[in-house]
């Protein structure tokens, strides 16, 4: 077996990095998933606030949506159906406790900030603000955060 030259070794390491990067980009490529998820969360909070009597079946509807999303994101067939050719998981890119916490930190921070604003200003329909914020977070920030986390996991 011929040992690679330093140049060949460096080229091989670049190949490894590029391969991982391709998968990471592909995992967050389907933007419509984030948009649909964000809208679903916002519409749920809006409907829940405006029609409180319909609360139980709205919750069932949201749970059904989440179930479909989990099947779509976690299974081979589901992933193919929603246009994601790869499944990325904790097994392929393990996430440390620090990064697990970082993933939920923005959600917690924003949630606390909205709760403070809603309670201090005594705003009505607080649930809608939460829903709007969660929707915006899912649509705009989640894909970027996911990309950064996956890159970070790859480096770790």
């Amino acid at each position: 077996m011929n040992e690679p030259t330093p140049e060949e070794a460096a080229a091989a390491l670049r190949t490894v990095h590029e391969g991982k990067e391709q998968v990471i980009k592909s995992a967050v490529e389907s933007r419509w998933i984030w948009i649909v998820s964000g809208l679903a969360v916002f519409l749920y909070s809006l409907a829940n606030d405006l029609f409180p009597a319909a609360g139980p079946w709205l919750t069932w509807l949201l749970l059904a949506f989440l179930l479909v999303a989990v099947v779509g994101l976690r299974t081979r067939v589901g992933s193919t159906l929603i246009g994601r050719p790869v499944i990325v998981s904790g097994r392929s890119l393990p996430l440390s406790v620090k990064w697990r916490l970082l993933r939920i930190a923005p959600v917690l921070g924003l949630g606390i900030a909205v709760a403070l604003v809603v309670s201090l200003l005594q705003l009505p329909h607080g649930g809608i603000y939460y829903g709007a914020l969660a929707g915006i977070y899912i649509i705009f920030l989640s894909p970027r955060l996911q990309l950064r986390l996956l890159r970070r996991q790859d480096r770790d």
């Binding site: 091989a12 190949t15 490894v16 990095h17 590029e18 391969g19 991982k20 391709q22 998968v23 990471i24 995992a27 081979r76 992933s79 193919t80 050719p85 790869v86 499944i87 990325v88 998981s89 097994r91 392929s92 890119l93 996956l150 790859d154």
Partner: peptide, 14 residues
Amino acid sequence: LAIVSLLAAAEWAE
């Protein structure tokens, strides 16, 4: 190596 590297970041790939 390229194939294996690609698969390393994925759980399953088409």
